[in-house]
Design a protein around this nucleic acid. Structure first.
Length: 834
DNA sequence: TTCCGACACTTTTTT
DNA sequence: AGTGTCGGAA
């Protein structure tokens, strides 16, 4: 979890210079636009030293001043450095106050890092800046302005799962499933529309209503929108879209932010969608004279901002991006935003950064030759002054488990050669690939962390506990109430739920009110008291955070503990005989710990702030660089990160490129960019691996090497085990794949094996000395000592050389006769003592 | 209303 | 393989 970017908006303070000084002591004497106080000296480097160590292009990107700047930054070209130095130089030269800077990054983690790096350059004057994601920035604006357009500032944020749950109910009620609608398909379509800034009305105007399916979709969209509004909730896409509507509908509110942010910087611009583009566009508009007058009438000091025409010119915009790293088209990212930047912002300067400071030349050459296969791109070649470096290592496993064992073994080798675990990462295309990796890593006692995937906050029991908190913070949120209604079991079934909803509808009040009044519904005494009791518990929670409450604001953890006690959520999990429920109970207790952690990091933050933070945490935010663990993540999550050693697994057709991308326009090209992003994360070592067979949906399918492998020149790859088997047409894969170089394991045993596509390959197991099965066993409290001989199901006989660790985490270091040295977790490894 | 077993369906990537 | 959903019985 990251610290939220919760610096207060300084608008109120800037109206009154005295208050401003008090709240931001680093800024002396001042109106926020007066930049003439000579005593303001940032700590750290002065303006000149900010340019030290930068190449000429980087310098230009830092120094250029003008309305618009596009920095085309290839992978590893130091763009974060350029961005932070650019911000630092604006501050150091006192061309801008911190509060006038808005920097948008892709993840909270990137935002935190950028803030840290700017602070390292200029010291604490970095405090008042807004450095955040699009979503966080919009939440701040929306909470601030919510009351101005009919929303409650305690609105709930629905994540993708919440949206789908709501749509599921709507589709059921409308019986829309008969038209083939699923929550997923409806959510995707609505999301797409919102990313294009379409709302129900504009969609209704263009939709073909004579088509019953279209009419039904319109009905779904309309109901969904109404339900969100009724619950005082925004979905992810609304956060951006509603902010744009807000600015359009209320120019005087837009003017506040146009005035405040004089320098806007956007990272990963190639992944912005239309709504985000419009948001940036709105923020960089000039303030017209009538709005200027209105602002001044409200005592906002515009001072020197007003130009000769009586307007405040638009903020200066800096965007950084690389169209070769655009991997979010599926989410509405529009590559035209970057390719047509010069047209959108006339007079824009473009700076190209092509020198790579991250990777060895071999890695870059591979990346260049892969991406060169995407036509319709500006040619751009990364180069490094750092020398060729190591060759790329290739490996073909018999199965996903075999591949995982290779990865584990190589990681162990790297580690004993001095590469720390946290400098090693394993990437894959789909989250489902983690299973095999995880099994092997646990068995091999490798410390690892999975980024993203099934996230803590997506677990059912955590969502239940969170729903209690949401119901307290936002009583209008019916979905949270419905979720909480019968968890833990209270004997309130769907029939009762429907009765409550009907009662609320008929009387024109909220679901929550209906719960309070359950007594007048004539239901059974047990059910009635359960409902009334729950309503009372939630109301108690609400008074605990009520700002009017004389007893003061309770801490989030106190509210949560009170709700958990009152609802007996944890106890009911503990009482159940399902063994998994013990782990669930522990998860809920972990959530209490999370709230306490939040309180430590955010002494000012309340329940709403906590809920916001939880809603906006992303996979990449969890990455803890200091921990000594290997990181496992999807290729998407890997964007923006770098490691000494990188493993890309599952480099197979149907997986990379993924089969789902085949039919999408631009799909294969986007998949290629994804591969390119993965390759360019590596500094020194790159491993590409694949498997001949891969388990999916419970059975085994044949896999073919990815077409992208052939695009890497053969001399860059050293195959530990090449995928040189016959393909479906009876020929062989390209020369690159057959890699006729001297290899310790010649291709002999492989080529010709396998056979026609679709059949299970009959490959002699002897061809894979490392062939690994998914077997796990419980060895109880088997004890091993150095010198013991053991037999492993997959690796054969070996001798224990050392034993480390405690209790269930005891690890045997074993020298196998045929398979080399390995570490095994004694408790679960498929071994027996001889 | 809840519980249980049979079943169907899943897996693209994420703020 | 694992999870969610549905129908029927208690």
């Amino acid at each position: 979890m990251t610290t939220p970017d919760d610096t207060p908006v300084l608008d109120d303070a800037t109206r009154d210079p005295e208050a401003f000084r008090a709240s931001a002591p680093i800024i002396l004497d001042g109106v926020d636009v007066g930049i003439d106080d000579r005593s303001f000296r940032p700590h750290g480097e002065s303006g000149d030293t900010l340019l030290d160590g930068l190449n000429p292009q980087q310098r230009e990107a830092v120094e250029y001043r003008g309305p618009a700047l596009l920095i085309v930054a290839g992978a590893g070209s130091g763009k974060t450095r350029v961005l932070t130095h650019r911000i630092a130089s604006l501050l150091a030269n006192r061309e801008a106050w911190p509060s006038q800077i808005l920097a948008i990054t892709f993840t909270n983690k990137a935002a935190a890092e950028m803030r840290e790096r700017v602070e390292a350059l200029v010291g604490e004057s970095a405090q008042g800046m807004w450095i955040s994601t699009f979503h966080s920035a919009c939440v701040r604006i929306l909470r601030r302005e919510a009351e101005n357009f009919g929303y409650n500032r305690n609105f709930t944020i629905y994540d993708a799962g919440d949206s789908k749950a709501l749509l599921k109910r709507i589709i059921k009620e409308l019986e829309a499933d008969t038209f083939g609608f699923t929550p997923g398909s409806a959510a995707a379509r609505i999301s797409k529309l919102k990313n294009e800034l379409s709302d129900v009305d504009s969609f209704a105007r263009t939709a073909d209503r004579s088509d019953p399916k279209e009419a039904m979709f319109l009905e779904i969209f309309r109901t969904y929108t109404r339900e969100l509004a009724r619950a005082s909730a925004f979905d992810f896409d609304d956060l951006i879209g509603q902010t744009v509507y807000l600015f359009r509908a209320f120019p005087h509110i837009a003017a506040l932010y146009q005035r405040r942010f004089r320098h806007i910087l956007v990272d990963e611009y190639q992944d912005t969608n239309h709504a985000q583009y419009e948001l940036i566009h709105a923020l960089t508009q000039p303030i017209e004279p009538d709005e200027v007058a209105e602002l001044e009438a409200k005592d906002y000091n515009l001072g020197k901002l007003v130009d000769a025409t009586g307007r405040v010119p638009g903020a200066s915009l800096t965007v950084v991006g690389d169209s070769d790293q655009s991997i979010y088209a599926f989410r509405g990212a529009d590559i035209r935003n970057i390719s047509e930047f010069e047209r959108d912002f006339p007079g824009a300067r473009v700076v190209l950064l092509e020198q790579n400071y991250r990777s060895s030349q071999n890695i870059l050459s591979a990346a260049n030759s892969v991406i060169a296969n995407n036509f319709d791109r500006k040619d751009k070649k990364l180069w490094s002054a750092g020398g060729d470096g190591e060759k790329i290592i290739g490996y073909t496993g018999y199965s996903g488990h075999d591949e995982a064992q290779f990865v584990a073994d190589e990681i162990e080798k790297l580690h004993s050669a001095g590469v720390p675990y946290n400098e090693i990462a394993v990437f894959y295309r789909t989250n489902s690939q983690t299973r095999a990796l995880e099994e092997i890593f646990i068995r091999s006692a490798l410390p690892y962390r999975i980024m993203g995937g099934t996230k803590f906050y997506e677990r059912a029991e955590i969502k239940d506990a969170m729903a209690y908190l949401i119901a307290v913070a936002n009583p209008a949120d019916e979905m949270a109430l419905r979720r909480v209604l019968n968890t833990p079991k209270r004997g309130i079934g769907p029939a009762t739920e429907a009765q409550l909803a009907g009662y609320a509808e008929a009387n024109g009040f909220t679901f929550r009110q209906a719960m309070r009044d359950a007594g007048s519904l004539g239901m059974g005494p047990k059910v009635t008291s359960a409902i009334v009791e729950l309503a009372r518990l939630l109301d108690e929670g609400a008074t605990m955070i009520d700002p009017e409450n004389p007893a003061g604001q309770s801490k989030v953890s106190d509210v949560l503990v009170h709700l958990l006690k009152g609802s007996a959520l944890v106890e009911s999990l503990r009482a159940s005989r399902d063994p998994q429920n013990e782990a669930r109970a522990e998860n809920v207790e972990e959530l209490v710990a999370v709230t306490k952690e939040f309180e430590r990091n955010n002494p000012e933050g309340g329940l709403v702030e906590f809920l916001t933070e939880v809603s906006l945490v992303a996979a990449a935010d969890e990455i803890d660089d200091a921990s000594g663990t290997v990181s496992l993540m999807t290729l998407h999550t890997a964007k923006g990160l770098e490691y000494d050693a990188v493993f890309i697994t599952g480099v197979e057709e149907e997986l990379l490129p993924h089969r789902m991308s085949a039919n999408e326009p631009g799909g294969p090209a986007e998949e290629r960019r994804l591969f390119y992003v993965g390759i360019t994360r590596a500094r020194k070592r790159l491993y590409l691996s694949l498997a001949m067979t891969r388990a999916q949906f419970g059975d085994v399918a044949v896999a073919l090497p990815s077409r992208y492998l052939q695009e890497i020149p053969a001399e860059l790859i050293e195959w530990k085990q090449s995928p040189g088997f016959a393909n479906s047409r009876g020929g062989t894969q390209s020369r690159a794949l057959n890699a006729r170089r001297a290899s310790r394991q010649p291709d002999r045993g492989l080529s010709g094996a396998g056979g026609s596509f679709g059949a299970k390959p009959e490959i002699p197991a002897s061809a894979w000395p490392n062939r690994v099965t998914a077997q796990v066993r419980d060895n109880g409290d088997l004890t091993l000592e150095p010198g013991d001989r053991i037999r492993h199901v997959d690796f054969g006989d070996g001798k224990v050389t050392a034993v480390t660790g405690e209790g269930s985490k005891r690890v045997a270091h074993v020298q196998f006769e045929k398979s080399g040295a390995k570490k095994l977790l004694i408790k679960i490894a498929p071994i027996e003592k001889l």
